[in-house]
C-alpha cells in the first residue's frame, strides 16, 4: 500500500502526496531516561497520521520533538525535504507547524476571537509604528487576518461565542477553540495532542468530523495522538505504534491491528 516515493491512495480515494516531514532515528534522553529510542517514520502530505501507544510510551515527547519543544538527543528531523537545524519552538511554528495541547493551553484572559487571532500572529508583519497609529499596514492586516480567523470560526461552528472570554467556556468548546487557533495559522502540519481526551461520545463525534473536514477542506496534513482506539483506527490513514519509547508498529490501521507486537503491548503478553 505504501509507495515510498510516490505516495498512495487511501481506501476512501484520497491522494496522499510525498513526504512532508521525516523523523530519522530520533532518540530523546532526559538524563538517564530514554523517552524515545531510535524511532524513524514519515508524515506525508495530506494524510492523517496517528501516533498511539500505552501510557508513557513517549508519544507526547515525540510530538514535542516535532513541534520543536524538545531537541532530539540524536537523529534528524527533515521537513519539506531539508534537514531542520535545531530551532526554537516559535521558529518551527513559523515554518507551518501548528499544534493543540493535551491539557488545554488557551489564553484564558482573552476572547475566543482574540485567541483565534493569535493563531494569525505569525502572518502579521506590520511594524511597530503603523501599529501605534493603527494606520496603513497594521489596519489592513487586522481586517485581512480577521477574515481568515472568521472563516475558521465559521468552519468550527463557534460564531456564537466569538466575543466570549475563553475562561467562561465549557471544556468541549475550549478544545474546539484551541483547534481553531491552530487552524487559523493555516499550518502545513497540524499536530493534535489527544484531541478527544475527556470528551463524551457526542463531542468526540463532533471532533472527529472536524478533523476529517479540516483534512478534506484545507488539505491539512494532520498528526495526532489519541488513546481512543476506535477513533484512531477510523480516522487515520497510517498509524505509528510506540511502546517504552520504541516503535513497534507502523502502517495502515489494519496492518497495525494485526501486528503481534502491538497486540502484546496493548493486551499484555504471557511470560
Amino acid at each position: 500500500m505504501t509507495d515510498q516515493a510516490e505516495g498512495y491512495t487511501t481506501a476512501d480515494g484520497r491522494k496522499i502526496g510525498g513526504v512532508v516531514m521525516e523523523m530519522k532515528n530520533i532518540t530523546l534522553r532526559f538524563g538517564g531516561v530514554v523517552a524515545i529510542h531510535n524511532i524513524s517514520f514519515d508524515i506525508r502530505e495530506g494524510e492523517i497520521r496517528a501516533i498511539i501507544g500505552p501510557n508513557g510510551a513517549g508519544k507526547s515527547s515525540m510530538l514535542n520533538v516535532i513541534s520543536g519543544f524538545y531537541t532530539p538527543s540524536e537523529g534528524e528531523v527533515w521537513y519539506k525535504g531539508a534537514k531542520r537545524p535545531p530551532m526554537k519552538p516559535y521558529e518551527v511554528a513559523r515554518q507551518g507547524v501548528a499544534r493543540t495541547f493535551q491539557n488545554i493551553a488557551l489564553f484564558e484572559g482573552m476572547s475566543v476571537l482574540d485567541n483565534v487571532m493569535t493563531g494569525r500572529l505569525t502572518h502579521m508583519k506590520a511594524g511597530i509604528l503603523p501599529q501605534m497609529i493603527w494606520k496603513g499596514r497594521a489596519e489592513a492586516e487586522e481586517t485581512e487576518n480577521r477574515i481568515i480567523a472568521e472563516r475558521v470560526i465559521d468552519f468550527l461552528e463557534i460564531q456564537h461565542i466569538r466575543k466570549t472570554p475563553v475562561a467562561r467556556l465549557p471544556y468541549g468548546l475550549k478544545k474546539r477553540v484551541e483547534l481553531a487557533r491552530a487552524l487559523a495559522a493555516e499550518p502545513t502540519i497540524l499536530l493534535l495532542d489527544e484531541p478527544m481526551a475527556g470528551m463524551n461520545v457526542e463531542e468526540k463525534e463532533d471532533m472527529c468530523r472536524f478533523i476529517l473536514d479540516v483534512n478534506d477542506e484545507f488539505g491539512t496534513t494532520i498528526a495526532l495522538i489519541e488513546h481512543d482506539m476506535g477513533v484512531v483506527m477510523d480516522l487515520s490513514d497510517r498509524v505509528v505504534v510506540m511502546d517504552y519509547g520504541k516503535k513497534i508498529g507502523d502502517g495502515s490501521p489494519d496492518e497495525v491491528r494485526n501486528n503481534q507486537d502491538v497486540i502484546d503491548a496493548y493486551l499484555g503478553v504471557q511470560h
Binding site: K88, P89, Y90, A93, A98, A105, G119, L121, T122, R181
Partner: peptide, 8 residues
C-alpha cells in the same frame, strides 16, 4: 509556553 509554540 503555548505562546511560544504558536510562533511568538
Amino acid at each position: 509556553f503555548a505562546a511560544e509554540l504558536i510562533g511568538i
